[in-house]
Nucleic acid binder design. Sequence first.
DNA 1: AAGTGGTCTAGACCACACA
DNA 2: GTGTGGTCTAGACCACTTC
Lengths: 243, 243
Amino acid sequence: MNTLPGDARLPRYQQLRDHMVEQIANNRWRPGEAIPTEAALASEFQMSVGTVRKAVDVLVAEGVLERQQGRGTFIRRPQFQSSLFRFFRFESANGARVVPESRILSIEPLPAPSAVAAALGLAAQTEVIRIVRLRLLGAQPVLAEEIWLARQTFQPLLEVELDRKGPLLYPIYETLCGQVVAYAEETLTAESVDAVQGRLLQLPEGSPVVVIERLARDYAGKPLEWRRSRGHAQHFRYRIDIR
Amino acid sequence: MNTLPGDARLPRYQQLRDHMVEQIANNRWRPGEAIPTEAALASEFQMSVGTVRKAVDVLVAEGVLERQQGRGTFIRRPQFQSSLFRFFRFESANGARVVPESRILSIEPLPAPSAVAAALGLAAQTEVIRIVRLRLLGAQPVLAEEIWLARQTFQPLLEVELDRKGPLLYPIYETLCGQVVAYAEETLTAESVDAVQGRLLQLPEGSPVVVIERLARDYAGKPLEWRRSRGHAQHFRYRIDIR
DNA sequence: AAGTGGTCTAGACCACACA
DNA sequence: GTGTGGTCTAGACCACTTC
């Protein structure tokens, strides 16, 4: 038995939803784990199973939870490497999808430029870490990325050989820095590549490139990472259903 | 009282959902109209209100219906002109969003090229209508569009002065041809503009443009229109939330 | 067989729209 | 006030997973 915090004017299923998000944000439940059964939650918070189901429905629709009939309901671990696949077609010679390798060109602490500080919600000049890296298929560069992180939180990254740890950063954030990326906002634009980026991507200056800016947040909504990725427009294809 | 058609092994709420989609597809209910109340549907199909609510929930999530507390549940009329706003920022001098004007450059019947026939689900060489038009803000072209329609269904378009009827085609399809666009699939790509399109858009050859291909369908899923729009990448910005 | 989520019921009361 | 959708209850039984 327990009582729900939060605004009592809200529907009870919303209060429960908010409470569960908070549990996840506070690492009470970890990604991949099962939450208590619907019956257990109903009895803990003195509500009917139907109300619990409605709260869970909301979180499933938001992509936070995942139901598995007969097994339980689990905290979903977001699959962010799929993000690039939504935008860029990276395929090996036989047509299988491939995660491009990663080559880190630089990683260094520096005072935050004002745009980065604003995006990450930091005071101007706060120390941040900038990572510049290339993503490659074989020898061919396909994406150039700039990644910005608060130094205070991500200091451990400066003390390891990142390139040894594979192309995906978010699992590293989780194991090394205890930070879980839960949501992200992405903005797509397109532009003509400049000389610097063109050299990185081995494209003639003026070639069309697609730019993806991403702000990644934890379950509590706190900004963790800001990154800007540029890729050759020729690999870019994005499909969407509208109504 | 009534019985539901369809696969009786499916959950009853799914059967009701399918039935309602069929009603809409057959123009039994028109966009903007209210569907029967939940209580009426429950008694008509001999199920509880909770089951009706679940069927309606699904259709609301799919964007087909819209609930209005205290008023009723309505067939949603899709607002497709907002599609371009999702991708391109068209603003007047004072920052307000504007629907670009339309200037039709050509409209003519011709045998379907094979790619168009495939997209529209027509036999090769079926007669189709091709519309080429520019979208402009003031004197400035911002989008160039190619639009393909089955001639048999859209013949009335050839017999009117389309430019007199405003920049939005879908309301015209509805009033003149009785066709309601319900869903669409869009594919985004980017490329360097060629000489022909560059002249239309008043851009130097090689400038980056974003290409949107759209296949629009009616409620029954039948393809109605295939179009390809090109716009200057500088106006392109698309934001998305991921999890 | 036991435990989980999935479907469904029949009712209650609340919040909002509208005449 | 009447009618609509919105919330919530307390059960029942089904389908699937796991032991």
